[in-house]
Design a protein around this nucleic acid. Structure first.
Lengths: 338, 338
DNA sequence: CTGTTTCACGTAATCGATTACGCAAATTTC
DNA sequence: GAAATTTGCGTAATCGATTACGTGAAACAG
């Protein structure tokens, strides 16, 4: 096999036309079963692989879906992608995964590329820098947002109630007797983090506990930065008795910072993470976390996108998934000394 | 903008032919600078995005590269992909990331899809199930393997010396006084794990330490399985005084298993991981690990692939990267009581 | 002033599939 | 048994770009 085999090769060998071969391979009703068999047999024998460039050009559908996320190394994303691919793969769709690395310009650039590839649809999660959505506006393509979703309700959005999730997490900490809870928020301006902070505040207000704005700690998603920020804050605010972290990976650094500050978890300081990553049960102490169903959310995003592609009109534009607290060692209540 | 804009639209608006527009956009020498300016200006204004299906079909180059890895959630892979994308992105290439989830059939399926997309090249890492390479043989496309590479030296391979890396790791453990080292190998038949076991054995032989084959522990990459296997082994073999793990994530489960068995790290049992993931310094105790330059390896894979695509002949077919031991708390030598 | 290059662009074929339209033969309908 | 329908396939246009080849005008050479 020197050159790639095409439907013309198959047609010639079977004394048919390319049109017939194309229809046979697409299982068209206007081709007899016997011809289909012959075509399929020869296609298999010659190891024919259809040229998606050609079919996509003509049919304007190439069975490729773009996935645009901040970073595949984030647990939520790799897990959601697994869910997306499970649903989409079963329907014969391929995914093209693009990473923004939290940069707006890379988000725009990736978007242009996905347009130029003419993917059939797009599942996107906004970068930390994304404040407005011009580049998503007239995209001319089925689009579903997941996790980091915009406020704009013209889009289909798959997400959790971040405020409520944080509310529940902070409430749990407050109820176990904690009063000075640091919030490891991540980079400045991250929308989901702001929403969670609102939940943080609401839980405090309901518990009539005062809020210290200096316990809202920003940092970059860069190994070491969360650690140092928290260590510094612990030094400045020795009263801290709990830490709530935007994700479990950051919580690991928090555990280290607390330990190195000479305090212990959960006796002195409780720690609650977010996402319930697979390593969290094995940490020491095992990490309590707010769990969100990332795999299921990926599945739902894919299902909704398939709906859009097939032209169904969508009834609901926003799909809010439930979260729940996973209690582990890092938030065990302090035993009051008898 | 109701419909996607094409070079025909631009040509009509400027009273040119599509050919001229195409050449202008590709900065061809046979187009005057003034025409190029006009074409580029209008293209920008109309937000023209070239159709990669069309250009790819005609030119047989679509500036897309396939990346085929077992799982993007593995630290090595997401890190190597970052390196690949840094190099390839600068040259205008897009990547299509496919996951085999360690399954041979998914590897074959993904490969067919990448062929049908007619990607310009492929960077691949073999699945745990892959034993022979028929599906890679007559692929008709530039191909570079990374990390999980085949033995076949007709391929370009980017990897480490797994035997040597494990040798160094085990040697370090033996030199610090450990004698009964469990090897957390991962799933049965994983080539890199077998190579590392050879290094494990060589280090033992050179140190004239006996090898217990029952300390070679297999498991699935599924949360909990490594933990339970190790706990069981510790119970059966109480003499174990060190654990060497195929990666850091598994090592975290090992730390938990050791702890739950009532032993302490590093006093009773030392733990050494592999990959030096970004969370490893923050664990408790901080995790020693064999470090490999995954990002750099990704970069090199991309550079080699670009060379293949541009038709350069490659001098070396195998690029072996250096590894080194990162010593942290989990392998501190035991202090002999004075 | 004629012949040769060079410049800047047009003409048209091409990539490999899909699909609207057409049509003869086979089958069914009444 | 004539008309209507169905079956099974061919013809040719088409998707949007690239590119081999052609060409008129301007520039240049001798």
């Amino acid at each position: 096999m020197a050159q790639k085999v095409t439907i013309y090769d198959i047609a010639k060998a079977l004394d048919l036309t390319p049109a017939t071969v194309s229809r046979a391979l697409n299982d068209s009703y206007e081709i007899s079963e016997s011809t289909k068999e012959k075509v399929r047999a020869l296609a298999r024998q010659l190891n024919y692989q259809p040229n998606r460039m050609a079919s996509g050009l003509r049919s304007k559908r190439n069975k490729m879906i773009g996935i645009l996320v901040p970073n595949i190394a984030y647990h939520f994303n790799s897990s959601a992608i697994a869910g997306i691919e499970e649903v989409l793969g079963a329907q014969g769709y391929r995914t093209i995964i693009c990473q923004t690395h939290e940069k707006l310009d890379r988000e725009i650039e990736n978007l242009k590329d996905l347009v130029s590839i003419r993917v059939d649809g797009l599942i996107a999660s906004l970068s930390a820098e994304t404040l407005q959505l011009d580049h998503f506006q007239d995209l001319q393509m089925p689009l579903v947002f997941i996790d980091r979703v915009p406020i704009d309700d013209r889009f289909i959005r798959i997400h959790i109630d971040n405020e409520d999730a944080a509310y529940k997490g902070v409430q749990h900490l407050l109820q176990s007797g904690r009063k000075h809870i640091a919030w490891l928020a991540g980079p400045e301006g991250l929308d989901i983090a702001e929403r969670r902070y609102r939940g943080y505040c609401r839980a405090h207000q309901e518990a009539e506990t005062s809020i210290d704005p200096q316990l809202k700690i920003h940092f970059h998603f860069k190994p070491g930065d969360p650690y140092h920020r928290l260590r510094q804050t612990i030094q400045e605010k020795p009263a801290i008795d709990a830490v709530f972290s935007i994700n479990d990976r950051i919580a690991i650094e928090a555990l280290a910072a607390i330990r190195d500050a000479g305090k212990s978890v959960p006796q002195d300081i409780a720690v609650m993470g977010f996402n319930n990553e697979s390593i969290s049960p094995w940490l020491y102490p095992s990490l309590s976390s707010v769990s969100q169903p990332s795999f299921e959310m990926g599945r739902e995003a894919a299902l909704q996108l398939l709906g859009l592609i097939k032209g169904q009109k969508m009834q609901s534009r926003s799909f809010v998934f439930e979260t729940h607290i996973v209690e582990r060692g890092s938030t065990l209540p302090v035993l009051v000394k008898g």
